[in-house]
Design a binder for these strands. Structure first.
Lengths: 227, 227
DNA sequence: CGGGGGCTTGAGGCCACTCAACGATAGTGG
DNA sequence: CCACTATCGTTGAGTGGCCTCAAGCCCCCG
């Protein structure tokens, strides 16, 4: 899923240029930087949205919880990605650092001020929201109608487009995060990956099973038929 | 789910006023009207998006398909709702009339023209996209992490806010549509409704089991705990 | 080198799915 | 207006995919 045209946006969907602001060009927008240790909270659901964030290094997960602790991760934000952009006044997800992460903070208020007068920034704000919507729409199809193997295959293909260096997917997140993103359990994720490995579709590089090489993208894609 | 503040938007989320255009005030925007028979297609996924639509009477479903026919309905659009608004050039869902439906068509091009110069229209275009995004985000939690009873309860509460006349929910859609919206099967929907009926939470009015009265919203809501 | 967390694998159980039959309803045409 | 029929909704029985619980292994890190 997430059939993003290759021409659309590659590793990181949006860099600052996408907002129409190159570094230092606009003195109104304050750009602070901050680092978060693995597992720490960046903001919480329903908190007032004061900043917009861009990932400089590391990875972030955004999620919702049910009262009994069930968790649904809505998205992973990797290097270059912008997140925390809300049009209402409060955050709709909780955001946490998946690993040690450096973020660039942009004051929401100043961003809106720029958007007021700059049509390019405005257009990009809308197109970011649309991209998020498109991702959520595709993820609804995955969560509502795909089986475990199809979900894991789709996840690998998505990550293949985003965190691949020299043909190797270096996953920053653990099995539990993947499971809560795909709406299954961590054991089911592990079993699906094992099956794909034994089928020769993928290979675990090194002893760390978070580094994966895809050997047969065609077979993977056959589990992920769009329509 | 869909914890929409009561103050936010009531029966139909958006009327034309929400786009900042009252009838006839803007001669540039052409408003055609059209009716569709039950079950007919309005537009198809990946078709170029030429129009934006507003439901005058009836109901519309928008969905995605997998190759083998599995279907995920992303949303139901009821009287007053606007749908088919894309920022890209093509539709991301297929849209069909659930029942006999009258739609108002708005040329996308002319809408964008108005948005160019009118900040109010612009703002509302963005806020509609944000509303759609928020709905999708909440639906991801439902599809990924809720059980059948919780899904049906959430559905009833959502519909209770949208199609209730005199305390009675008059569902325009059948069990299969509900199932494909909630990511379960029609039998499971039926069983959940029966259980809720026997528990005294709801009551079927008349012989048509599409008319439902909620007798215990509190108990229903207890299946739908947000966080 | 020892401790702890993350990943894998197995066994058993449960919730939702599948297949099927039946009843009810509404739409159709005589 | 009524009989007919296709469609929709309900309910039951059995199955299966994923979940739960548990144990063991391997890393990584201190």
């Amino acid at each position: 899923m997430f059939v993003r045209k290759a021409t659309n946006r590659m590793p990181g969907p949006y860099c600052l240029g996408d907002l129409g602001m190159t570094t230092g060009s606009n003195p109104i927008v304050s750009l602070n930087e901050f680092t978060y240790k693995k597992g720490t909270e960046i903001y919480r659901e329903k908190e007032p949205a004061e900043y917009v964030y861009q990932v400089k290094t590391g990875a972030v997960r955004t999620y919702k919880l049910l009262t009994d602790g069930r968790r649904q991760i809505g998205a992973f934000h990797l290097v270059g990605d912008i997140f925390g952009l809300e049009n209402g006044n409060e955050h709709r997800f909780t955001a946490e650092a998946v690993v040690k992460t450096a973020l660039r903070l942009i004051k929401r208020q100043s961003l809106e001020l720029v958007a007021e007068s700059d049509p390019v920034v405005r257009r990009n704000l809308l197109s970011m929201t649309t991209s998020n919507l498109e991702h959520a729409e595709n993820h609804m199809l995955l969560l509502g109608r795909k089986n475990a193997l199809e979900r894991v295959a789709a996840f690998l293909l998505e990550m293949d487009e985003r965190v691949t260096a020299m043909g190797i997917i270096a996953l920053p997140m653990g099995r539990l995060d993947i499971a809560d993103y795909l709406g299954i359990t961590l054991e089911t994720v592990s079993r699906a990956l094992s099956r794909l490995q034994q089928a020769g579709v993928l290979e675990f590089i090194g002893p760390n099973h978070r580094d994966i090489a895809l050997r047969d993208r065609g077979r993977l894609a056959s589990f992920d038929l769009p329509a």
